[in-house]
Simulated scan of single mutants.
Amino acid sequence: MKKYCILLFILSFGIPEACFSQEDISIPTTVIDSLYKEDQFYFGLTYNILVKLPSGVQQTGFSLGLQGGFIKDMPLNKRRNIAIGIGLGYSYNSYNQNIGIIKDSNNEANYFVLDDTYEFDYSRNNFYQHAIELPIEFRWRTSTASSYRFWRVYTGFKVGYVFSHISNFKGEVGSLRYNDIEGFNDLQYGLTLSAGYNTWNFYVYYALNPMFNDDVKTALKGESIDMSAIKLGLIFYIL
């Protein structure tokens, strides 16, 4: 009977004392990741400027560009403020200009300049493109492991595969729309630069190759269409 009394005493007073005599456990503070990366989603809006225009060719309105995708960040130094970024994205680009495109009975595209030679008015003449893009960037920034607001300068190279070319014309003679037109260069590439602070950054793209193949010439002028694009705008990076 004595043993049972001792056991009851231990259970009544010993265990609660052991449980409640422990020190309070504090909530851990946020752990700073010293191996952080700037893996980012990006979204951009640009104004597309056509350069190297043939005689009589000009832009006729606002030409819009949109882009978006994801970039994988690979730091190169211990501070992790210098890195290489490789990504995958999509872009849409429209170009309003006065190069008319008409397909003949053999489904071949003919290019001509809409100038004073034609005695009709038109309200729309443009072409636009959809592309899959691979951006490659050399990245410098003032970021730290605990700061999400910093200055950046990212410069690099972008390759795009244009998987859809569409031409639109609307005027007195009717409406014409063509898809997947031969004559465009499916592979587009150029230099890029983005610079700014935090989310807001200026963006520049300078094309290194023309939009059209070497064989494409304007029907009236007989000149090769060597025009390419410069894109100016804003790009936003989001973690």
Rank of each mutant, 00 (worst) to 15 (best):
I82M: 12
S175G: 04
V162H: 03
A109H: 05
V57G: 09
N213Y: 09
S164F: 13
G89A: 06
Y205P: 01
Q59W: 08
N179M: 09
Q188W: 09
T30C: 02
T218W: 03
N126Q: 13
Y206P: 04
M227A: 05
L232E: 04
A229V: 08
S224P: 00
R149H: 14
Q58T: 09
S91C: 06
F43W: 11
S63F: 07
L45R: 04
E17M: 15
G14C: 09
G61E: 08
D33Q: 05
K158V: 09
K221N: 13
F41N: 06
V162R: 01
D215I: 01
G56R: 07
T117D: 11
P210A: 04
F212Q: 02
K37W: 02
Q59T: 06
K2E: 11
N93W: 04
S105R: 10
D121H: 07
V162E: 02
S12D: 01
Y205H: 10
F184Q: 07
F184H: 01
T192H: 09
R139H: 10
A145G: 07
L234C: 07
Y118S: 03
F236I: 14
T60I: 09
G14P: 00
F43M: 15
G156I: 12
V173G: 08
G65Q: 03
K3H: 14
Y205W: 09
I32A: 06
N201I: 01
F41D: 03
L232R: 02
D215W: 12
N209R: 03
W151A: 10
F138L: 15
L208S: 00
K72Y: 14
F184I: 00
L220I: 07
